[in-house]
């Protein structure tokens, strides 16, 4: 009995002592993670929490913040005359931009993949705007769209009678979408082109031997095979387009009127022009909810059109 106990005791002691090597590893891990943990806590975790808390206050940068419960949200949904138009603008932008972006980039990707030579150079050309500052892009396009500028010159020469895009209530958003498309199709073009490159040539050859037309080969084989990538591109594009800001800040400042004011622009305006930090935070959370909802909706939708092998 006593012997057994003594053995058990020494085992416990040695076990404790034995884990020193593992503990050393834990300590190393702690020091390696420390810079990241400090940064992430200070600049990611704290801001996320702060953002929630702020959205329940009426803080205006100067003065003491006061807890106001759901007042910000209630005001947003029921009293703020700008809110619903802003939501509508955001959804309008996202929907039109998303659809056009996917169609154009997929078209370009397929077109590029049909080439025998120079594929990579075409890819680089369409990709270029992705690596250039959105602000610079927007400024160049603003010059193109300026009254009496190049765009008006072209429409005038073709005898198309259009009002100036940037100053027209209806067309201003179209100008923003054109610029966004020019800047944004490149990434998806390369993404989809890469996916097409990965479709094994044997599939296409087999289909050709089976007598499938080029049309059928595209719709029945290539498209289903790259549908997971298509889905990935669609989700990512939707998430970024709901946050649109740079182009609008440069080209229209939300105008004319509030024709191009989006959620991203509202957050900036309320937060950094009116300094309504609490109110702007609640808009940010509405945006987050919309991003989550749209993403969830796409995941639900994907079951109907995305094909995964196995």
């Amino acid at each position: 009995m006593a012997v057994v106990e003594r053995i058990a005791a020494t085992r416990a002691v040695t076990r404790k002592r034995k884990n020193r090597l593992d503990r050393g590893e834990g300590r190393t891990a702690f020091f390696f993670l420390l810079p990241s943990l400090i940064g992430v806590t200070l600049f990611l975790v704290v801001p996320i929490i702060a953002s929630v808390v702020l959205s329940f206050t009426n803080w205006k940068l100067l003065g003491q913040p006061q807890f106001v419960g759901f007042a910000n949200y209630i005001k947003l949904f029921t009293a703020d005359p700008q809110f619903w138009p802003v939501v509508r603008n955001t959804l309008f932008f996202t929907f039109e931009y998303l659809v056009l972006n996917i169609i154009i980039s997929l078209g370009l990707a397929v077109w590029i993949s049909s080439l025998k030579m120079g594929q990579r150079w075409f890819r680089v050309i369409f990709f270029l705007p992705t690596f250039t500052p959105g602000i610079a892009v927007a400024i160049v396009w603003m010059l193109i769209f300026a009254p009496g500028g190049f765009f008006d010159f072209v429409t005038g020469s073709l005898a198309i009678h259009l009002p100036n895009l940037l100053t027209d209530q209806k067309l201003a958003m179209q100008a923003v979408i054109i610029v966004s498309l020019w800047a944004g199709v490149g990434y998806n073009t390369v993404l989809f082109n890469a996916a097409l490159d990965m479709v094994p040539a044997s599939y296409m050859e087999a289909a050709r031997i089976d007598g499938a037309s080029a049309w059928d080969r595209f719709w029945k084989i290539r498209l289903p095979l790259i549908s997971p990538t298509l889905f990935f591109g669609t989700v990512m594009t939707a998430i970024t387009s709901l946050q649109v800001f740079d182009q609008i800040y440069v080209m229209t400042r939300g105008g004319p009127g509030s024709a191009t004011a989006t959620l991203g622009y509202s957050i900036f305006q309320k937060g950094f022009q009116n300094f309504q930090m609490g109110y702007a935070s609640s808009i940010a959370w509405v945006m987050f909810a919309m991003i989550m909802a749209l993403t969830a909706f796409q995941f639900w939708l994907q079951r109907k059109w995305v094909h995964y092998d196995n």
């Binding site: 085992r11 040695t14 076990r15 002592r17 034995k18 884990n19 020193r20 090597l21 593992d22 050393g24």
Partner: peptide, 22 residues
């Protein structure tokens, strides 16, 4: 070699217990 920790027991190299050594 010291690449895995020792859960129980002892390993000696040259009369030196090395359990805790790197």
């Amino acid at each position: 070699a010291g690449l895995e920790s020792i859960s129980d027991g002892d390993i000696e190299i040259g009369d030196r217990v090395v359990n805790d050594l790197e």
